[in-house]
Design a protein around this nucleic acid. Sequence first.
DNA 1: AACCAGGACACAA
DNA 2: TTGTGTCATGGT
Length: 310
Amino acid sequence: MGRTTILPTSPALIVARHSNQPEAVFTGYRIEARNYDLAATLSSGQAFRWRWTGQHWEGVIGDHWVRLASDPQGIVAETAVPNRDWTWLTDYLQACVNLEEIVATFPDDAPLQGAAAACRGLRLLRQEPWECLASFILSSTKQIVQIQQVIALLCSRYGSAVTVPAGHAPDFAFPRPEQLAGCSESELRDCRMGFRAPYLLTTARLIAAGRFDLNLPYQLPLEAARNHLMALPGVGRKIADCVLLFAYGRNEAFPVDVWVMRAICELYFPRRRISRSKLLAFTESHFGPFAGYAQQYLFHYMRVRRKSAT
DNA sequence: AACCAGGACACAA
DNA sequence: TTGTGTCATGGT
């Protein structure tokens, strides 16, 4: 009872709580972690299904409803259903990666060091490829709050209900490709996704029909993996790089959106005109093997800086 | 109330 | 190859 270590090398340990009333049985789990800014990580535009209740972060990973909070030892999780295997959560949160080692590989320039210092504890998650792909197809020229709204609507209409704590509002898994493949384009447009609807629909149908292999990017070189994803409608360079980084764990991938574009231009090439291709070439050569982490620091740094300025 | 949002795409030159 | 218009929607 009490404490059980899962894996010999895992920093995580189980903290299970039991009750006599079956309805009240929740399973708790603590992930030991240093230098993990949960709020920054869950709200930094990688994943779109987390909401802050005032005390916890609530969301759905796969078909697991979960509630997360930081504590002095790391992260405490609470689920609606008891779990024996917690790898779905530890894989997702990536708390076992040594962030100090990663930041140490960053180039020693003022802009990036400043961003890293301002966003200490910001992590990259490891998401499920389909949800990540579909989410970023819906992300183009939309604000993060709007992406969250569209995805919440999509999940509530077409996702399967997941088990939630007694008395809690219903929550839903992200819809599987097969669940969207049967939709009409107008049904998806009713989820407020606008011109992105045909992109998502065609992509869902290709995957549901087994005509697109979502496992290939795991074993292809970066550029080939990127080209494979870019064969999908609505997936260009930026969205492909987001999926490679946030789902496939390709740490070299460096998605360049409007925020990162501004960050590079302002911080690295002030008062100079630089072509997009030169900027891409710069990002590929400058930031090292964990360029994707550097990108996330620059992205988040620009956004929190703007928020505090207004 | 304009401006802009984690872009992609077809088409022009 | 690089530049422009278009595509919905609604938050700030």
